[in-house]
């Protein structure tokens, strides 16, 4: 039995460094071995592996992956392949012809259910990023639960120390107000 076979969605969501590392190290050689046929430099492939890993993690955290319909390595490989395609289209590189098709079965369906678009930040977002970083821990955590995890107010109530929905709502408004004010003050 492979290590990752007994890692559950719940384990991943807890986000402990040990689990993150286990999954990272377990899938790294598999991915690089699969991707070497695309004739890209190894450092690019490691970079793509990390991006694919992050995108996979996003989808675990934001609830798009509700249960594992494939192995973790299939998820990461499918996302990584999508990213390699993007890069190849951009570079028009020559590819090594030893491609194992079986790895990619069902990949269309898999990719379509995930959110992997990741545009660079716009100037406006960069400014927002700067100010978001200056917020207090409580605000950052609450906004993260809301916008990254996609939690509802009820979910937040269940998972945190807040004792009423109204407190959550008013804290959130206050955090956003602070952000807006800080942005206004820089302009």
């Amino acid at each position: 039995m492979h290590k990752e076979d007994y890692i559950t969605l719940k384990d991943l969501k807890k986000g402990s460094d040990d689990i993150l590392r286990l999954v990272y190290e377990d899938n790294r050689p598999k991915f690089l071995n699969f991707a070497k046929r695309y004739n890209l430099p190894e450092e690019d492939l490691v970079d793509i592996y990390q991006e694919a890993y992050i995108a996979f993690y996003d989808n675990v955290m934001n609830g798009r992956i509700k249960e594992f319909t494939s192995t973790i390595s299939t998820y990461i490989t499918s996302i990584g392949k999508y990213m390699i395609f993007d890069k190849l289209k951009y570079n028009k590189r020559i590819v090594h012809p030893d491609f194992d098709i079986s790895v990619l079965n069902n990949k269309d369906d898999l990719i379509d259910t995930l959110d992997i678009d990741n545009e660079n930040l716009t100037t406006e977002q960069q400014l927002l990023y700067k100010h978001f970083s200056t917020l207090g821990k409580k605000c950052k955590e609450l906004l993260d639960l809301f916008y990254y995890r996609g939690f509802t107010i009820k979910d937040i109530l269940m998972h945190t120390e807040y004792n009423s929905e109204n407190v959550i709502k008013s804290t959130k408004s206050r955090c956003m107000k602070i952000l807006k004010e800080r942005i206004l003050n820089t302009n």
Partner: peptide, 25 residues
């Protein structure tokens, strides 16, 4: 504003995770 905020929160997560992955590396 909220869409931008959503993107920014995601970016923050990505940067933290990326730095962890680089440490593993």
């Amino acid at each position: 504003f909220e869409s931008n905020l959503k993107r920014v929160v995601k970016e923050k997560r990505h940067k933290e995770l990326k730095s962890k992955l680089n440490q593993f590396e």
